[in-house]
Simulated scan of single mutants.
Amino acid sequence: MKLKVGQIVGRKSYQCDILFRISSINGNVAELYGEDVRLVADAPVDDLVAITEDEHRERRKKEKEKEDNCYYLFRQDSRVIKKRGDYEATSGYSTEPSYFEIRGRVLHIDGDSMYLRKCMELYEKLGVPVYGVHVVEKEMPQQIDSLLEMVRPDILVITGHDAYLKTRGNQKDIKGYRHSKYFAETVRIARKRVPSLDDLVIFAGACQSHFETLIKAGSNYASSPERINIHALDPVYIVAKISLTPFMDRVNVWDVLKNTITGERGLGGIETKGFMRRGMPISDYEDEQ
């Protein structure tokens, strides 16, 4: 069976541990994008095996269970924050709750249009205001300034695909990474425009990204401390926590990481403040919108 672009495959040499989409085929080499993890890889075509629909469905079911568990844990935390907000806004429940919320606005820049679509669906489920745009990693430094000017976000996500390539250098060398240098440069430009770590919260990185460089460039959160793969939806869970946390509260790093699919081996960051603000009263006009 001849392989084609868009097909779901596994690598025989890795026992098909990760499912990939074929992005392009050049001669005997295929470029692969992770189906559920933000990893890009090259592989000989003869090392690839097509994944059947039944196997893909079974693997997707297992991934969905992990995603649903993270969503459940996140909603639990959100309910705790909501109850505390109700208590504070009603002077200990002495009055009826009547307030509105302005949540932190996210600009999500993604190098993968399919992942972006999945992330946008999750943002909507979590109630996070977001503007999403697909930009290939190499073009992100050229696009970031105009996007920040247009959207004026509270939170910025810079992600897509990445990979550590042993043939390019050791793990400490930024040149050994496929897209980390573009993520880092994008962060630097954004941080030049908004220097304060509290005025613009930034998440940057993908699978196996150079964590230390991204943090030094000005990210609040980044991947990947142990150079492992991260799940496609992990950036959403990180920034959603910040978007929905009251601006008077600090977000503990562990509180952010515990609800991600990958955890602290693949994600890390620094203490950050929340962005959500409450206001009152709710006007009749607002109720009609």
Results as ranks from 00 to 15, higher is better:
residue 5 V to W: 01
residue 6 G to R: 03
residue 8 I to V: 15
residue 13 S to K: 10
residue 13 S to C: 08
residue 14 Y to N: 10
residue 18 I to N: 05
residue 19 L to V: 01
residue 20 F to C: 04
residue 21 R to G: 00
residue 22 I to A: 06
residue 23 S to M: 07
residue 24 S to Y: 08
residue 25 I to D: 09
residue 31 E to L: 13
residue 31 E to A: 13
residue 32 L to K: 01
residue 33 Y to C: 06
residue 36 D to T: 14
residue 37 V to C: 01
residue 38 R to M: 13
residue 39 L to V: 11
residue 40 V to S: 12
residue 40 V to T: 10
residue 43 A to Y: 06
residue 44 P to G: 09
residue 51 I to T: 08
residue 52 T to M: 09
residue 53 E to C: 01
residue 57 R to K: 12
residue 58 E to Q: 15
residue 60 R to H: 11
residue 61 K to S: 12
residue 63 E to P: 01
residue 65 E to M: 14
residue 65 E to T: 12
residue 69 N to L: 15
residue 71 Y to I: 12
residue 73 L to V: 06
residue 73 L to C: 12
residue 77 D to Q: 09
residue 78 S to E: 13
residue 78 S to G: 04
residue 79 R to S: 15
residue 83 K to G: 12
residue 83 K to I: 13
residue 87 Y to R: 13
residue 88 E to A: 12
residue 89 A to F: 08
residue 90 T to E: 04
residue 91 S to R: 14
residue 92 G to F: 06
residue 96 E to I: 12
residue 96 E to F: 14
residue 97 P to F: 11
residue 100 F to G: 15
residue 105 R to C: 08
residue 105 R to W: 00
residue 108 H to T: 01
residue 110 D to K: 02
residue 112 D to Y: 04
residue 113 S to V: 13
residue 114 M to L: 14
residue 115 Y to L: 08
residue 116 L to Q: 09
residue 117 R to V: 00
residue 118 K to Y: 09
residue 123 Y to A: 02
residue 125 K to M: 12
residue 126 L to N: 03
residue 130 V to G: 04
residue 132 G to W: 07
residue 134 H to Q: 07
residue 135 V to P: 05
residue 136 V to N: 09
residue 139 E to H: 10
residue 145 D to L: 10
residue 145 D to C: 00
residue 154 D to N: 14
residue 154 D to P: 06
residue 155 I to G: 02
residue 155 I to A: 04
residue 156 L to T: 03
residue 158 I to S: 01
residue 170 N to E: 09
residue 170 N to D: 13
residue 173 D to M: 05
residue 175 K to A: 11
residue 178 R to D: 00
residue 180 S to A: 02
residue 180 S to G: 00
residue 180 S to T: 10
residue 182 Y to A: 06
residue 184 A to Q: 08
residue 185 E to I: 00
residue 185 E to M: 06
residue 189 I to P: 00
residue 191 R to Q: 08
residue 199 D to R: 14
residue 202 I to H: 02
residue 203 F to I: 01
residue 208 Q to Y: 01
residue 208 Q to E: 15
residue 211 F to G: 04
residue 214 L to A: 02
residue 216 K to E: 15
residue 216 K to W: 02
residue 217 A to G: 08
residue 217 A to K: 07
residue 217 A to M: 03
residue 218 G to K: 04
residue 219 S to I: 08
residue 225 P to Q: 03
residue 230 I to P: 02
residue 231 H to C: 09
residue 231 H to R: 12
residue 231 H to D: 15
residue 237 Y to N: 01
residue 237 Y to W: 08
residue 239 V to H: 00
residue 246 P to D: 11
residue 247 F to G: 00
residue 248 M to F: 12
residue 250 R to M: 10
residue 251 V to R: 01
residue 252 N to F: 03
residue 259 N to A: 02
residue 264 E to Q: 10
residue 264 E to V: 05
residue 265 R to D: 08
residue 265 R to C: 01
residue 266 G to N: 06
residue 266 G to F: 02
residue 269 G to L: 07
residue 270 I to H: 02
residue 271 E to G: 05
residue 273 K to F: 13
residue 274 G to Q: 01
residue 276 M to S: 07
residue 279 G to I: 00
residue 280 M to N: 09
residue 282 I to D: 00
residue 282 I to L: 10
residue 283 S to I: 08
residue 285 Y to F: 10
residue 285 Y to I: 09
residue 289 Q to S: 10
